[in-house]
Simulated scan of single mutants.
Amino acid sequence: MRDLNGCSGSLSDELLEWYDRHARDLPWRVSPAARKVGERPDPYRVWLSEVMLQQTTVAAVRDYFLRFTTRWPSVADLAAAADADVMAEWAGLGYYARARNLLKCARVVADDLGGQFPDNHDALLKLPGIGPYTAAAIASIAFDEPVAVLDGNVERVMARLHDIHDPLPGAKPLLRDHAAALTPDERPGDYAQAVMDLGATICTPRKPACGICPWQTPCAARKAGTAPDLPKKMPKKPKPTRHGIVYLARSETGTWLLERRPDKGLLGGTLGWPGTDWTDAPTPNPPFTADWQELDGEVRHTFTHFHLVLRVQSARLQAGFNPAPNQELVPEEAFRATDLPTVMRKAYELYANR
């Protein structure tokens, strides 16, 4: 078995050779063959994809990315978009703070930087919503800056390659050091995508395909038989369950009463149904006095830190109702359930299928 010490160049070369043959075809990516003949990635598309991919799978992001880039093909187009349109297009992708920061960042780039993204990690970090991982990914992929990119896939690959049993998240600095040691000066953007592809397609969380891995020989965890058990993680705390009530009100002509949530907080800036706070024992808080009827069934949804159970009540929205400042009356022809966050869409589906 080859010693890992002092062979970072050969390991990177081996992975790049594998990537040249097996790179995933992704709508935001410039293929290694195209890069070799001079085609450069669009920083806007790299940035947009990386923001969308945070805590979200490639399969879930692909259609959203295509819709966004069709509707807003440049950062200037996105910067000029109405907040409500962007939030509606984002609906269902989750983690809505990403969409709010997307708009903030687009407007800084368009208004203050002449529509050009900074070309280095440190400058990218100063933009709204861009943290260390996203800055490294953009700097590396879009501008070929040799900085280490460390996402969940790369963490897993590094933990197995070096047979590291220290649990995450405490092991992150060590894994980052190992990732940095392997990052080459030549083709760092392709290398960053290669190691992410390796984790996504071969060095997978369960049943890694070690037999076809380009790094099977130097992999310490493969030799030790520990690869399926890595990386180690600290035990997760049980998620609490919260409860709430949402109120669906519709007029005889099909107009819906919707409510925009505050910009800060969970689902911030999105349009949904009026409702209670989400607590252990919510206090009823209907938007107007009526004969509210509770629907059979309930809505269940899981957020990052808690489970949510919603009761759904409905009533007729009377003509002449005067909405509160944070509420909107949406005519039937303008209402699209797909513009709602997933948890609110589930409440609509319960109503529609009653």
Results as ranks from 00 to 15, higher is better:
2 R>L: 15
3 D>Y: 11
8 S>W: 11
20 D>G: 15
27 P>Q: 07
28 W>V: 07
37 V>G: 09
42 D>I: 02
46 V>L: 09
53 L>E: 10
54 Q>I: 13
56 T>H: 08
58 V>A: 14
61 V>D: 06
66 L>N: 06
70 T>V: 12
81 A>Y: 08
83 D>G: 04
85 D>M: 12
101 N>I: 07
103 L>N: 03
106 A>N: 11
114 G>C: 05
120 N>V: 12
122 D>H: 13
126 K>C: 10
128 P>R: 03
137 A>P: 01
140 S>M: 01
154 V>P: 03
158 M>V: 09
161 L>V: 09
180 A>E: 08
193 Q>S: 03
195 V>S: 08
196 M>T: 04
200 A>K: 10
201 T>R: 13
201 T>P: 00
203 C>P: 02
218 P>G: 14
233 K>H: 09
236 K>C: 00
240 P>Y: 01
241 T>H: 03
243 H>P: 04
245 I>Q: 13
245 I>V: 15
249 A>Y: 07
254 G>P: 11
259 E>V: 05
263 D>N: 07
263 D>F: 00
265 G>E: 09
265 G>H: 01
270 T>S: 11
270 T>L: 08
293 Q>S: 14
296 D>S: 15
300 R>D: 08
300 R>Q: 12
305 H>G: 10
312 V>Y: 09
313 Q>P: 00
320 G>S: 06
327 Q>Y: 09
331 P>H: 06
334 A>G: 09
337 A>I: 14
337 A>R: 15
340 L>K: 09
349 E>R: 07
354 R>H: 14
354 R>L: 11
